[in-house]
Design a protein around this nucleic acid. Structure first.
Lengths: 240, 240
DNA sequence: ACAAAAGTGTTCCAGGTACACCCATGG
DNA sequence: CCATGGGTGTACCTGGAACACTTTTGT
């Protein structure tokens, strides 16, 4: 016989739900992968860096909360956003001890264009792009969430065209290659092989326009063609 | 200047958090992929089939809730469980309208051995293995969750050794092959190629024991060696 | 003229595909 | 002895890895 009602000793938990965003961008000038961190100006973890997050409001979608948070911190036109993972164990937020509330967070993973992303300095709390190698100890379980997001980023790069959300509309093949090497490491592929493999797939169109950057032969600007990419959707290892 | 407090019009949402499990198993006799459904015996969606789910209790981990739910429905020794996705938009649960509470669900994906899984009939509510092709309209947004879990299952099969969680300790290579074809479809690979590719990876050990099933040459029983598999972890497309 | 960056081509080899074929058992 | 399923082998080909080489610019 199933119990219809729970006894008092096993009552349901009450939750506040937050979203925490792992927002990446790539500084192609300095070849660094960056993550957006905020300096907390209230308890808990006041004075410590953490992922930007917010609590979900009445009537608000999870994704809407993630977008709202993002819009509060940076102005950006193009971005890629997807849900990552949910962390909801008890005692992951110090505020839980005082009140009888649990805090569950749904983490989101975002990728924005570094060049066009304008940080919104609100004067009080700090906000900054941190190179992935220099991320400090974060508040809450945010180092774990960040690690999770980093893994997802590397996976995404391999089989999905997220890179083109971060690159400008027109880009050179070296731009693309450098993006991959800064995220994935130096030894994922030879440049010329990377180049010919991608071109053979025929979803990168040469605009014919050349651009010169200091010494060396000028490079062609390419454009990503989403429709031409479609057949490769869900196929593994398109880019590597 | 950041607002420290929210105005009354944008107050935080209060949540109950549930877990919904997409529990798969494979009937290798009949070559069918099965999913566990329960017949709801209370509102909302009374009398309709849905994924088995439960609400998270005080002090309980999300994963613990998922395991508790599973243990209430089936007795099983070996199983694979991982978090899938969280659905938390407003109005996804009819109960929300009456009270000022939102229902967020963290879905979990599970794989169990069909042969050893014993359904716990509690006499009142129905519970059954449904072939994936015959799944009816489910309560809540559970068809969407199921679709999500199905996608995850197919991906998992390709690069992770989940199959061996579902197969018995000793199995023939045809058992393995049939598992893959029933989940992935007929045309994913030739049997003999599938066979030689896997054997070359050297994590399947031939026990030498032969087993005969009706007509035809008897097959060798193999055992999966988790340690020998370790180097292939995180490598893509191990099985296809 | 030379260095630096972009782009092309070539050779070699692993690994996948599509088969044909052999083996052992039940009926 | 033949159908059935298990198991082995081979010939072909694609596609990646490594690397040499050419082209076009800045200084």
């Amino acid at each position: 016989m199933p119990r219809r009602k729970l006894s008092a000793t096993t009552s349901l938990a009450d939750f506040k739900v937050g979203v925490d965003n792992v927002i990446f961008s790539v500084d192609s000038q300095q070849n660094r992968l960056l993550v957006l961190l905020v300096l907390r100006d209230e308890e808990p973890f006041m004075g410590q860096w953490s992922l930007p997050g917010t609590l979900v409001r009445q009537g608000e979608t999870l994704e809407a909360a993630a977008y709202r948070m993002l819009a509060e911190k940076i102005r950006v036109e193009n971005l890629y956003l997807e849900q990552l993972y949910s962390f909801g164990g008890p005692n992951r937020d110090p505020r839980e001890s005082s009140y009888s509330v649990r805090y569950l967070t749904v983490s989101y993973f975002a990728l924005v264009r570094y060049a066009e992303a304008e940080l919104i300095a609100d004067g009080v709390s700090g906000i900054a792009w941190y190179p992935m190698q220099q991320v400090p100890a974060l508040g809450f379980d945010h180092n774990q969430i960040l690690e999770y997001g980093y893994r997802r980023l590397r996976n995404k790069l391999e089989y999905s065209p997220v890179a083109f959300e971060v690159l400008p509309e027109l880009f050179t093949l070296s731009d693309l290659y450098q993006l991959y090497t800064t995220v994935l490491g130096e030894n994922f592929s030879d440049y010329s092989n990377f180049r010919s493999r991608l071109l053979k797939l025929r979803f990168l169109h040469d605009t014919g326009v050349k651009v010169s950057r200091g010494a060396g032969r000028p490079a062609s600007l390419y454009r990503f063609d989403a429709e031409a990419f479609a057949p490769h959707k869900d196929k593994p290892m398109v880019f590597i």
